[in-house]
Design a protein around this nucleic acid. Structure first.
Lengths: 149, 149
DNA sequence: GGAGGATTGTTAGCGTTGCTAACGATCTTC
DNA sequence: GAAGATCGTTAGCAACGCTAACAATCCTCC
């Protein structure tokens, strides 16, 4: 119970790495990679977004996002549309298929994890829940402190 | 407070992704990528390891680990040595430089995260700690359920 | 209203990571 | 000793991440 932030930070980092490695396999199974799924998720839930904004949200440089969006568009999951007011912007819209695939992908990807979560007893699940909430706080504080846009 | 494992699993996944994206930048700053750092960490702490075992630990296929080890070796962080008893095996040893660099890298990488952790109040820090502990449980349960060896 | 600078997205090109398939070398078993 | 299993490597593919350089568009300011 030592208040050792370094150790805690390190454990958290390691746990996050291994968690994602597990989940990557599920992503592979459904045929959409983690970065694409994550970007698609933003587009679906945060409505139409410009490419640059999407890149910033995903903590990625614009060229990278250009390619991800191109991939999503080729699969018919999103649309590119020129902004009516500003010709430089391209708005990324989710297609119906995009929403469908996202739902399916989430379900599939989360299934393994959800199963493991479900196996936890009530107390642990509650602990995990508040831990995740703190983690989100942590993320947004780091985002602010290191040049956002 | 709804007992919705799917939602919780999804939030966890998203939070983990964004956390690692933050930390990747720190890895870049020190000049060693996350996969290499993670592999090096195993070699340092788990003593000499065969390549195959290292690959399994890192949840990666052997060819991938071959390349990672080659990179580490080129930087003088690990050594390859033939096993005395079994000519097929190659034991991966950490060098003194490897240990040094690992320590430095960990410190640096964890610094940002530790700073954010430190900014949390006591209660949240405690919540995070128990959350991480549950997360570790989660990981090992997933590892067991999907063919580990 | 037009010139110059800023912003946005794209293309080009590089390095790393992940995979599968195929192969040589070595051990093990019969 | 021959046949099969195991281990690591090589070869070749696709996806991600980056920086640098560019075209198009907007904005500012004279």
């Amino acid at each position: 119970m030592s208040p050792n932030p370094e150790k805690l930070a390190d454990q958290l980092h390691s746990a996050a790495i291994h968690l994602l490695r597990h989940l990557r396999r599920e992503d592979d199974a459904i045929g959409i990679s983690a970065p694409r799924l994550s970007a698609l998720s933003v587009v679906v839930f945060a409505g139409p977004v410009t490419l640059g904004r999407l890149a910033a949200t995903e903590q990625v440089k614009p060229p990278t996002m250009t390619r991800i969006v191109t991939g999503l568009e080729k699969d018919g999951l999103v649309d590119r549309r020129d902004d009516a007011n500003d010709g430089r912007l391209t708005q990324i819209h989710a297609t119906a298929k995009g929403r469908r695939v996202l739902a399916a992908g989430r379900a599939r990807r989360v299934a393994t994890l959800a199963a493991a979560v479900q196996a936890l007893d009530k107390r642990r699940r509650r602990e995990l829940r508040s831990g995740v909430r703190v983690l989100e706080t942590l993320n947004s504080s780091m985002r602010e402190s290191s040049g956002d846009r």
